[in-house]
């Protein structure tokens, strides 16, 4: 099966052109979230909420490692995932899962208590990753929005206009990443705006600005992609072979993300889809099928009258 280009009906592509901005068009910006330097502090979550006055959304202890915000939604526009795994991270020695060394002579297993249980555990690593709206090149949420509330900005980002949204909820089901959601008591759809107001004024998005380790890097998308490629090489060179980029490829099913990631495991491990495709890629075919079905309905109904009259 050949992947068709996700673009095709006037998507912004790399330059973000074709959205009618003319001179107002700006260079496309994005996020490179490098999860390999994330300390899981959640400053991004809080900074986002403070800046955007996103409501606090409840006290649920999940027992999912240190993640109590669970996932992206109307009230969580940055979400930090915590993944505990019995696997190694490059040449790190996590200590808690490493079997007792064989070379120095294992203490005899007959000793009472010689066996702690950790022997069973093998390796360990703790992955943390801050997720956010991808600001897809081909954004399903934006495509399906019937009001024009969702629109593509002059920066190539995808933003909900809260004065327009009527809460139809279509975008929620269209987003292949589970990002945008409707807020219960407000009725409108909400998600990351890539701090549209801030970047319009030359400021950095709040989450990226707060990030203590620069895990979230904001900037010109092309530069970020170059930096990410170099970073990937460095990590592979250093033995972190599980590193991979996610969402940076303009050839993928959504035409690449303006917010892309360096992950240390498969995307689904962090709750992201491994190979998302913008649903509207199949829309022409859907319309064709629908047209055919409509015709069939018409013809079929006519046929029902074609029989003998009674």
């Amino acid at each position: 099966m050949v992947v068709r280009s996700a673009r095709g009906h006037g998507d912004p592509g790399e330059s973000g052109t074709g959205q009618g901005y003319g001179d107002e068009q700006r260079e496309r910006v994005g996020f490179f979230t490098d999860t390999s330097v994330c300390i899981g502090c959640k400053a991004c979550e809080v900074a986002c909420k403070e800046w955007n006055s996103v409501p606090e959304d409840g006290l649920d202890f999940t027992a999912m490692s240190f993640d109590n915000s669970v996932g992206l939604g109307a009230d969580t526009w940055r979400h930090v995932a915590f993944v505990e795994q019995r696997r190694p991270l490059g040449h790190q020695d996590a200590g808690v899962g490493r079997p007792a060394p064989v070379d120095l002579g294992m203490p005899s297993t007959e000793l009472p208590g010689a066996y702690t249980g950790v022997e069973e555990r093998e390796e360990f690593r703790w992955l943390m990753a801050s997720d956010v709206c991808k600001h897809c090149t081909s954004a399903a949420c934006l495509d399906v929005c019937p009001t024009g509330s969702l629109f593509r900005t002059e920066f190539g980002t995808v933003v909900v206009q809260q004065d327009i949204c009527n809460g139809c909820g279509y975008c929620v089901s269209a987003c292949p990443y589970g990002v945008i959601d409707r807020r219960e008591d407000d009725g409108r759809a909400w998600k990351c705006t890539m701090c549209y107001d801030r970047i319009g004024d030359g400021m950095e998005p709040a989450c990226a600005k707060a990030c203590p380790t620069d895990s979230i890097q904001f900037g010109n998308l092309d530069e970020l992609r170059e930096r990410a490629a170099r970073r990937l090489e460095d990590l592979h060179g250093a033995g972190v072979s599980s590193a991979r980029l996610y969402g940076e490829d303009p050839g993928d099913g959504v035409g690449g993300n303006a917010a892309f990631f360096l992950l240390l495991d498969e995307p689904e491990v962090y709750g992201m889809p491994p190979d998302p495709v913008v649903t509207t890629r199949d829309l022409p075919s859907m319309w064709a099928h629908a047209g055919l079905a409509a015709a069939a309905l018409l013809v079929g109904s006519a046929a029902a009258f074609a029989g003998r009259r009674r």
Partner: peptide
């Protein structure tokens, strides 16, 4: 305008035109 499909400039709302960071 140049935004035939209504996914960009054409869809901009009043609030968007006025948008400024509160700072």
């Amino acid at each position: 305008g140049g935004d035939r499909l209504g996914r960009g400039a054409a869809a901009r709302s009043g609030a968007t035109e006025e948008l400024r960071p509160r700072t």
